[in-house]
Nucleic acid binder design. Sequence first.
DNA 1: ACGGGTAATGC
DNA 2: GCATTACC
Length: 737
Amino acid sequence: MQLSGIDEEKGRVRVWLGKEYKLFDFHPYFYIHVQKEGGIEDLLRDQENILNIEPQRKRLFGKELEVYKVTFEDQKSMNSCKRELSDNEIFEEDIPLTRRFLVDNKLVPYGDVSLEKGEIRTEKERSGRELKLFAFDIETHTRNIIDSKKDPIIAISIATSGGRKDVIISKDEKEIIEKFVSAFNEEDPDVVLTYNGDSFDFPYLVERAKKNKISLALGRDGSAVNARRGGVRDTYTIAGRDTVDLYRIVERDLQEVKVKTLDNVAEYLGVMRREDRVLLENDELFELWEKGEIKKIEEYTIDDVISTLEIGKKLLPMQIELCRLVKQFLTDCSRMGRGRQVESYLMYKAAERNELIPPRRYVQSEHMYEGGYVMEPERGLFENVVVLDFASMYPNIMIAYNISPDTYVEGGDEEHCYISPSKHAFLKQPDGFFRQILKELIEERKRLKKSAKSSVDALRQQTIKILTNSFYGYTGWGGARWHKLECAEATAAWGRYTIKKVIEEARKRGIEVIYSDTDSLFCVEKGDMRSFAEEMNSQLPLELEMRERYKRIFFAGKKRYAGLQDDGSIVVRGLEVRRGDWCELAKKLQEEVINTILREGDVEKARNMVIEAIDRVKSGKAGVEELTIYKSITRSIDSYETAQAHVAALKRAMDEQQDIEFSNKIGYVVLEGKGKISDRTKISSTLSDKDRIDKDYYIENQIIPVALRILEHFGITKEELLGKKQQNLEKWFSSQG
DNA sequence: ACGGGTAATGC
DNA sequence: GCATTACC
């Protein structure tokens, strides 16, 4: 039987086991530390619905603590007791009951479970049964600004892993929603997929169902879709099933995709090419509907829903492994930040080790601390450069020096403690909570990497890496239950100490180190670099590895370089090519310049490319797509202190009631005119024939800076690129002799 | 709502 | 000089 959903009921939980619900008595509990005289009986005398009181010895941040485990009939009784006894130290009262049930019974989401004498337990972590996926996407009748109170749904498209593809389209909204509900229940999915469903499809559907007096009964128990209150947006849940908003995963995990629209992400993941699909703007959709051209709308919405389903197929395997690893439901895990995922795992492990789970709180970080060491590179071109780096440097430092929230001691001595270069002390004995866990995880990862039997093992190995690499940041985060800034400070300090030590040792051996960032060093190749790494490894509790070798590499500053690797591939870091806030034309040009310099060493050719690009802009041949600059909106529009170009553009568009595609990324162009740039920006999708692009802006502020970033190091000047001054340019490489 | 370090633009 | 963004 496959475990695929747990829901809460009064005093019990309902577990969906593939075919049916099973009910288990399960009651909430918390731990309380009693300091007052009179003891626990006195304290709890007036409290109602207590089922059990049990003394226990627990640990909290390394200290032994006597607590009582108090079990209540139901959540309500526990909450009221918690409020009344808020002067006391109460722990673990904020763990949701369903999560508690999962953890206490050591269940694994989507694992195979068995029942024995009323007990449930996981038999196999991975069930052989395929999950049934169901993706949907809604279209609405919207002219300008979307309004769920007014604009009806005109179509809902559906795609399932079983191969069903449908568009429910009608002028009768009630009929659409009813057909949708019955189609949904026919399919009886395990996982419901949307792209931005938490912000759009679900709230809209709920609102319209309410308007039409239809119950959105999608739950396995017949219950309606539920909106769980969240900070920025709600999480929509369905009893007995998981919901996944793929947009939230993409936002968190696909940093390399700059504009995260459904079509862009589908293209990036190789699911559907933009040129192969129907794309409609909101106003076009409106026009088509008005004219009754249904066919095109159907094609469009089916492409959207197929993209959603296929993106889901690509992203879900990793998400499922992650939720299994951290023992969290897919619905929750897929929406959590890295910090909370780490924490979910820690909470699970805490129970195993008799550690109390510290309360959740948010502290404004007490003070800033020093992070990784970044060396200022000499700018320009180098040849035959080898990169050495420490594998998982921070987790390994934490293991090596037993850095953990429970081993930190104020004013610890050298005999009993490891003292960091930042003068923080950590007990040498016993193994800290984090050391135990990190050791386990790294061992497991090594094992999986060695065997690597299946693609699932490969995924599992990757999720372990993601998790272990997040521990350092987690300790430094003010929102962490196990927040301990000293741990983060000490880890970073040992990191700086170690990398500087290695740089020094390299230089002693005549190896030229040209750049270093946190855990890596770039060296001009000299003899056998591997033997140097091995020598370091014999002296350090960490592992220095030879990662890659560049035939040529160009440095434009800290965290900004481009290199040609031995295998012929080009790596670019930090430069404008990698950034979403430069126009495509400039980025493309920089990429070509980099390629030309690194592969051919032909500065003159690169220069001519720039001149050509300038000509293209001058003659008006460059398209709007190539000139659009994307920037994020990071807060409410009114709370901006300065008039940013993209914010100003958005404000103007909103004032004019123009329809704008949902997105926190604003794509804009700069138009002709005088004064501030922010006064003459316009959202690309609202451009009309009358609008004149500011060619000078694009030449002066996009093309020239991006080109000079590279070419100024090869003797090229701005005047030369603009054709103002002819220079008899020698090829840079020959002048270098 | 994982960390700090860094460069860059535009007001 | 500061606010803002996006990168490593």
